[in-house]
Simulated scan of single mutants.
Amino acid sequence: MRKTTRSLLAAACAAVAFAAAGCGTTSENTGQAQAQDPTRNCQGPNGKYTIGMSQANLAEPYRVRMDDDIRKAAARVPQFEVEFADAAKDNSKQVSDVENFITKQVDLLVISPNEAAPLTDVVRKAYRKGIPVIVLDRKVEGDAFTTYIGADNVQIGRQAGEYFKNVLLPQGGKIVQLKGLSGSTPAAERERGFREGIQGSKIEIVATADGEWERSVGQQKMDALLKAHPDIQAVYAQNDPMAEGAYLAAQAAGRDDLKFVGIDGLPIPSGGIKAVEEGRLEATNLYPTGGAEAVEAAKKLLIDCQPVPKIQTLQTELVTKDNAAEVYARLNQS
């Protein structure tokens, strides 16, 4: 009797696999997407649309800039109202934020996940309820989203590694790495790319510490790294705030000889491009926020009734003292 009941339940699940989310389908377990019409909420230019923006952590200047870019771009679309939520680096809060947007029945969700795995289920839930989902900067697992917008973090890491190999330490040397939050996809990808970039050189990464993407944490970790590895020549930091924190730790330790490279290249007075211009960093690697691109994708989906590519890759470039002023001016033209 029990076997028959299980068989009937399995048959029922198979029959309603696209309609019922509670039957434990393969796509649920793997995070793979079911079919979704990404323009289903489109009412054309006469509609009014609420967009929910779930941000990972506004303690990072990069994420403040991302929200500002979204706010600025959305202000040019009178049909859009954007509601912002800050998870403050708390996965459970970000899940709750997204659940709240689902309850409010927003017309579209933009999310920059704090970490991939903990946010995958709730993003998939929003997507399966018919809410178009734009994943920005950091990824989730599987493909239950409408579009992902971000730069190629492996390429960016490789670009940084090649700069170390070809320019900064052509004869080799010992360095330390300050890594971003370990569960976030850019942290793993930027490390993989960097290791590919220095391959074949005599550069040795003697230690890696998790700086959690924040300046203050990067400074603390760098202080400990300097005590443990006083013979290093340079620091690869996976974002500019950690690089600046490492610079402050090195200054406090009297290590004016160290060289620092970061990632982000925010075109703001306190950002990485100015840090390169002013000599604190040797280089940074441009990592666009994607804020304007996210609003443009939302416009296509909700107003123009057009689909968007599943993956949208933003361009990067290496910023050194030679081109820092030009890049800063160019990025602030808009």
Score class of each variant (00 low, 15 high):
86 D>F: 02
174 K>T: 07
128 R>W: 01
118 P>A: 13
47 G>F: 04
156 I>G: 09
333 Q>T: 13
118 P>W: 03
85 A>R: 12
11 A>V: 03
147 T>C: 07
211 G>T: 03
250 A>R: 02
180 G>Q: 09
171 Q>D: 15
146 T>N: 11
297 A>C: 11
315 Q>N: 14
273 I>S: 05
320 T>K: 10
260 F>E: 13
240 D>Q: 08
170 P>D: 11
115 E>C: 02
215 R>Y: 06
28 E>L: 07
108 L>K: 08
120 T>P: 05
17 A>W: 00
303 I>K: 04
138 R>M: 05
217 V>N: 13
209 A>M: 07
318 L>C: 03
12 A>T: 12
166 N>I: 01
304 D>C: 01
71 R>W: 01
77 V>N: 02
232 I>M: 13
22 G>V: 01
193 G>N: 10
36 Q>E: 09
257 D>Q: 08
309 P>Q: 06
30 T>W: 01
230 P>C: 07
40 R>F: 01
25 T>P: 00
19 A>T: 13
192 R>Y: 01
78 P>I: 08
271 G>R: 05
37 D>I: 03
118 P>C: 13
34 Q>K: 14
187 A>F: 02
212 E>M: 11
306 Q>A: 11
292 A>K: 12
246 A>V: 09
21 A>K: 03
198 I>E: 09
214 E>G: 04
331 L>D: 04
141 E>W: 00
88 A>D: 10
179 K>Q: 15
82 V>A: 10
16 V>D: 11
158 R>F: 02
120 T>L: 06
81 E>C: 00
102 I>E: 10
130 G>D: 11
272 G>E: 11
222 M>W: 04
297 A>W: 00
259 K>Q: 15
166 N>W: 02
195 R>Y: 07
93 K>G: 04
243 A>H: 06
180 G>S: 10
115 E>M: 07
68 D>N: 14
200 G>V: 08
109 L>V: 06
187 A>G: 07
72 K>A: 13
253 A>E: 14
188 A>S: 14
324 A>N: 12
229 H>I: 06
222 M>R: 08
90 D>Y: 01
111 I>W: 05
48 K>F: 06
171 Q>T: 07
225 L>Y: 07
40 R>A: 15
26 T>W: 01
101 F>Y: 15
60 E>M: 11
313 T>V: 15
223 D>E: 15
302 L>K: 04
64 V>Q: 14
297 A>N: 12
98 V>N: 11
234 A>I: 07
187 A>K: 05
18 F>A: 14
90 D>P: 01
243 A>I: 05
143 D>C: 05
195 R>A: 06
155 Q>V: 05
240 D>Y: 07
291 G>T: 09
237 A>L: 07
118 P>E: 14
317 E>L: 13
49 Y>E: 13
206 V>L: 07
265 G>S: 13
122 V>S: 08
80 F>I: 06
224 A>S: 15
56 A>T: 03
81 E>A: 13
134 I>W: 02
329 A>T: 15
55 Q>I: 03
40 R>N: 14
115 E>T: 04
308 V>E: 09
147 T>A: 08
165 K>M: 10
191 E>C: 01
144 A>C: 09
218 G>R: 10
259 K>T: 01
20 A>S: 13
153 N>H: 14
302 L>C: 09
136 L>E: 12
99 E>M: 03
275 A>Q: 12
